[in-house]
Amino acid sequence: MPLRVPVAAPETIASSLAPPLRTASGAIQGSNASVQAAVIERLRSRILSLERHAPRRGPAAIPETKDQGLAARKRPPWELGCDAGDALLPGGLETNAVHEIKGAPSVAGGASASDWMTGIGFAARLAVRRTDALSAMKSANRPWVLWCWPKAIAGELGSPSLTGFAYLGLDPARLIIVETARAAEALNAIEESLKGASLAVVIGVLDEVDLMPARRLSLAAGEMATPCLIVTHPASEPAGATATRWRVKRLPSALHRFDPRAPGLSRFEVALERCRARPASVARPPFILEWSDETRGFGLASVMADLPAETRRARSGADAPTLRSY
């Protein structure tokens, strides 16, 4: 008996070769209504997928080119440069958030110019780390930095100096300085610049930041992945909505390589007071960081290196002196 092999009818073959849209609806000669239903189903799924990608808030859905820009801005890790510091932060500082830096108050309730300078120095060096990481990315344009503070603070501390900032490591040709009449305007300017997506980092120096403005700044920073470093008055109330909060105290600098009477590399005692990504880091004791001008990074300051060479050799037991290169 010959096998009766079912021979597929031409219509059904065509239906199996047809795009999945049609098979989902069933037979190809099905009514128009089923075709329409399939089309509607497909459009519905497409709309759902678009809606899932659209932001919860914001003027419009971010188009694809902006997505790539966003990823590129977030990509290079923003790290302190030393293991002890980087162990505190998973994956480096967050590039789409606000970080607050406070100096240590020396006088009760007040702050001298040098207390401000401690916080500003740490913030500026973090900004140098950020711009260096971005410049290494080989992008077409070099990143810009915006410095924003109200006139009251500017009068006390002076004006940013071209050679001074170049010495620190920030490119002065890529610096925009905003000096506003009032602190509220400075917050406004910082928020506006965070939304612009054209800056590597925004550094603001203010007396204090209230909760609402801090939240707005966080949202603005998150939207466009522009990090914001705010240096606040050492004795003021800390702002609430920041990703990290650092308390920085300045220490006597390291020993100068050639001249023991000259100031050496600057040293900071750094404590992480708040860390949103890893709250356990807050419990760690403060540690001492030293900024190296050549590597443009932080290193853990070691007491050993300050001792004269002979004592070092005796203690470490090595024959050749291990000179610290900095």
Partner: peptide
């Protein structure tokens, strides 16, 4: 489109 993640300031 992606090589310049920063817009003109």
């Amino acid at each position: 489109p992606a090589s310049s993640p920063f817009r003109n300031p």
